[in-house]
Each structure stands twice: as C-alpha cells, then as structure tokens.
C-alpha cells in the first residue's frame, strides 16, 4: 500500500491525490468562470448606471416640458 511508513509515494500517485481545489488553482484555464464573472459584473454595473442616469434625465425633461406647457396656457397661474 502506497503511503505506508518506509515506502516512498510515487510522484504520479501523489499528483492524483492532490485535493481538487489545489488542482483547480494549478490549472489556469479552470479560472475562466471567475474571469467571466469579473467582466460581466463590470458591464452590468456600467449599463445599470447609464440607464439610471438617462432615465432620470428623460423624466425630468418631460416634467419641465409639462410645466412649461401648463404655464403657457392662457389664464394658467393668474389666480383669476
């Protein structure tokens, strides 16, 4: 039995026994999910921020137009 006292463990057997997490770290291509997550998060955050700012801008511009229209109607705001 490999690993018994007094008997050396062959190198390939030692490699096979490596915990899976260490093996994942040793093989660079296994980190692609982290890479995809980093890029995805960056894009989503930028899009959400631009969407939020643009939408608020549109809402406010619409409100300004409505206020102008309301004020420009004859008799509006004259109090009589």
């Amino acid at each position: 039995m490999a690993g018994q006292p007094g008997r050396p463990v062959p190198a390939d057997e030692e490699y096979r026994r490596m915990p899976l997490v260490l093996l994942q770290n040793a093989v660079p291509s296994c980190n692609l999910s982290y890479l995809a997550a980093a890029f995805m998060v960056s894009w989503v955050v930028f899009f959400v921020y631009v969407f939020f700012v643009s939408r608020k801008q549109q809402d406010m511009s619409r409100e300004i137009t409505q206020l102008r229209d309301a004020l420009e109607q004859p008799g509006a705001g004259d109090g009589d």
Binding site: Y49, V50, V53, K56, Q57, M60, I64, L67, R68, G77
Partner: peptide, 23 residues
Amino acid sequence: FLVAQRMALRETEDRLGGIKSAM
C-alpha cells in the same frame, strides 16, 4: 462620457428646481 452625462442630469435638476421655485 459618464461625467458629462451626470453633469447634464444635474443641470436638468437645477433647471427643474429653478422653474418650480419660480412657480
């Protein structure tokens, strides 16, 4: 782009605030 866009929004906020206080 983001800073210019945000500045434009702040300007619209100021304009709306100005119109509301005038009213």
